[in-house]
Amino acid sequence: MDRSDLSRVRRPLEVANGLPNAHYIDPTVFTEERQAVLFDNWAGLGVGDDVPEIGDAVPLTFLGMPLLMVRDRAGKVRVFQNICRHRGMILVDTPRKIEGAIRCPYHSWCYSTEGKLVSTPHVGGPGQNTHEGIDRALLGLIEVRSHIWMDVVWINVSGTAQPFEEVNADLIARWAEFDKPLHHGGADSRFQLAVNCNWKLAVENYCESYHLPWIHPGLNSYSRLEDHYHIENAGHFSGQGTLVYRQLKGEDGKSFPDFEDLSDKWDTSAEYITAYPNVLLGVHRDHTFAIILVPEGPERTIEHVHLYYSDPKTNSELRARNTEQWKDVFEEDIFVVEGMQRGRHAVGFDGGRFSPAMDGPTHMFHHWVASQLERHRTPLAAE
């Protein structure tokens, strides 16, 4: 299939093909998707707990772009391009606390945590810290549009997306019961997985429950394939839910405290949704998680996993067990996504076909990616 022809991807589920091989292995297509799929939409960058206290600053690289996440003096999380407006020098190269200002290590231009340029030493000559040709008001840090929901820091690099609350209105409403303080579990509730695959394969695998009996036999022993249901919202998110969620219990028989005021549905159910493009979310009566997929190239992705609870003082032993349990589940998927990645080098593969009964959420994601690319190639193209 010609990579430029995505019409077969956007066919109805029963007759559609998946995205062509080039969308997983071709650097040129990767660059196109970087803009059309990730920069032009609300992509996940990190979590608020990366900068838990005022003045905390963390440098991040997202698709080659150097960024700086800062919690400013008002407690707001901001994202800036991590460069000085003078000569483009990287400002912060390791996580640290900003005690005064963000100082460029090259010529000492200084910025507030709100991004304002506050000092330009010797810019007008020795001892002259101002110059009529340098308007500090116009030379603040370049701020990247950002929004926090479920503690995920979402960014819209291009600045062209509709407001986050509009784009994700249906998902926010669906999980309104979890719109309450989420407490990160701390150091034992975050981990990373490096996988040798295109980021989209991680999304595709997460969206569906079809693989459970063979890839997750332990999970499938109590949350069976037939206990799952599809979650589909065209153009925004897709995933799966289960009618059988089994809480983890300690030796004393106690489990994590539930989130308050949940409806009866959540007594036994849990849901796992991909918020397009790159954030995998899970909600349960007693904990949530977020997985942020950060592409490092066409064939490599870092999965940043964070777990949250209703109470900041959960049992540390039980918390560590929960983290390890989820890590085991996510690691079971690695050989699958890496195997599919290797398969994308088979020149005869046409993108594959979908199970009309089982692959709806995955097809919906493919359809959305194709629509973003077609809009990028032909701005007037409609959904």
Rank of each mutant, 00 (worst) to 15 (best):
M1A: 11
L6A: 04
S7D: 10
G18S: 12
D26N: 08
P27L: 06
F30G: 05
E32Q: 08
V37N: 02
F39R: 04
A43K: 02
P59S: 01
F62G: 01
L63M: 15
R71T: 01
K76V: 01
K76D: 00
V79D: 00
N82W: 03
R87Q: 13
G88Y: 11
G88R: 08
L91N: 02
T94R: 15
R96E: 04
I98W: 00
I102H: 00
C104G: 03
H107T: 01
S112V: 00
K116I: 08
S119C: 07
T120H: 03
T120W: 07
G127L: 11
H131N: 15
G133E: 13
G140N: 03
V152K: 00
V152S: 00
V153H: 01
G159Y: 12
A161N: 02
E165Q: 14
E166T: 12
N168G: 03
N168E: 04
I172D: 06
I172M: 15
E177Q: 12
P181A: 02
G186W: 02
Q192R: 15
L193D: 09
L193K: 11
A194D: 15
K200W: 13
L201R: 07
A202H: 13
E204A: 08
C207R: 08
P213M: 11
I215T: 15
S221G: 10
S223F: 09
E226H: 12
H230W: 12
I231R: 04
E232V: 15
G235Y: 09
S238A: 15
G239L: 02
Q247C: 09
Q247A: 13
L248N: 10
D252W: 05
D252R: 07
W266D: 03
Y272H: 15
I273F: 04
L281G: 02
V283H: 06
V283K: 05
T288P: 00
E296Y: 07
P298E: 05
E299M: 09
L307E: 05
L318R: 08
R321L: 14
V329P: 05
V336T: 06
E338Q: 14
D350P: 04
G351S: 11
A357P: 03
D359M: 07
W368L: 14
E374S: 10
H376T: 04
P379K: 11
A382V: 15
E383P: 04
